[in-house]
Each structure stands twice: as structure tokens, then as C-alpha cells.
């Protein structure tokens, strides 16, 4: 039965492609949510790669739990211990509830230790929760394996 799934889904795709030939829809929510989560995580890691506590603080909500100051200190210590070189990730779940967006993902990154320039490979499964404040999505919570800490 399982072997039938793929051809059935493929036929479904062809029919949908054929039907959707005149208009596109404005609100594609699950896809938009995933695209948003993808961009938020990419932008946050890009900002972390040139970390400055003053400027990264603007990406973190004042209501960050458990404590924003400790989180920023942790990131600062991590950045000045090991320089981020490269990162890739793939989203698993993106769950939106009210003004919160929770994204779980698997990630791989490479960092270079400052003291020795050794290249270290790290990977993990992380969860990041964002909160929408004043029309901006800010980091609210980081769970599981943090993408930022060394």
C-alpha cells in the first residue's frame, strides 16, 4: 500500500498543475509560514556571524524567556570563542499560534576556534520560537540544541 502513495501523489500534482492554470491564490498559509521561518533563521545566523551584542539585541524580544541578558551573554561568549564559518539547516515543523511562530529544524554548522583556528563541525536539532511585536518577528525562546552556542 505504501508503494502506491508516490504515484498517487504524483497524479494529484499533475492534476493540480493542470487545474491551476488561470489564477494563483493570495493566502498560501503553510507555505508562507515555512518561507518566513526559513528567512528568519537565515537572517539571524547571518547577523550572528558578525555578532555585536548591541545590534543583535534588536533581534531579541524584551520578553525573551528565561532571560534576554543571559542569552545575549551566552551568544557573545560563543562568538568570541569560535568564529562561525558556515551553516545549513532544514525545517521540520513550523507551528504558528497567535503571535508566536515555533520552528524546529536540523542544522549543521562549522566554526573556527579563535585560539587554535581549528575547524569544528557541529550539528543538532533546534527549536526557535519567534514573537511578533510591532510588526517584527523577534526571537522569544531557544530550545533544544542552540544554533548559536558553541
Amino acid at each position: 500500500m505504501r508503494k502506491l502513495y508516490i504515484p498517487i501523489i504524483a497524479v494529484f500534482c499533475v492534476i493540480i498543475a493542470g487545474c491551476a492554470s488561470v489564477h494563483s491564490f493570495a493566502d498560501i498559509s503553510i507555505t508562507d509560514e515555512r518561507n518566513l521561518a526559513q528567512k528568519l533563521i537565515e537572517d539571524d545566523f547571518s547577523a550572528f556571524s558578525q555578532f555585536s551584542k548591541q545590534f543583535f539585541s534588536q533581534r531579541v524580544s524584551e520578553s525573551f524567556i528565561p532571560d534576554k541578558a543571559s542569552f545575549l551573554n551566552e551568544l557573545e561568549n560563543s562568538f568570541f570563542t569560535a568564529l562561525p564559518i558556515d551553516m545549513s539547516f532544514s525545517l521540520d515543523k513550523v507551528l504558528v499560534k497567535g503571535n508566536k511562530l515555533a520552528a524546529t529544524f536540523t542544522w549543521q554548522k562549522k566554526v573556527s576556534l579563535r585560539v587554535s583556528n581549528d575547524l569544528i563541525l557541529k550539528e543538532g536539532m533546534g527549536e526557535m520560537v519567534y514573537i511578533k511585536e510591532n510588526n517584527k518577528w523577534l526571537i522569544y525562546q531557544v530550545r533544544e540544541d542552540s544554533l548559536f552556542t558553541f
Binding site: 500534482c13 493540480i16 491551476a20 488561470v22 489564477h23 491564490f25 493566502d27 498560501i28 503553510i30
Partner: peptide, 21 residues
């Protein structure tokens, strides 16, 4: 649900399916 071509919004219909492949 199976209307993918008319472009009607959700307020003008009972429901819809959307997504991506």
C-alpha cells in the same frame, strides 16, 4: 475545495485547499 482556477477568496466560498509541492 477542488476549485483551483477561479481565484475566489475564502470569503466567497465554503473552503479551499492550498499548498505547495
Amino acid at each position: 475545495l477542488t476549485d483551483f482556477s477561479s481565484g475566489r477568496s475564502l470569503s466567497e466560498r465554503s473552503g479551499k485547499i492550498s499548498g505547495s509541492i
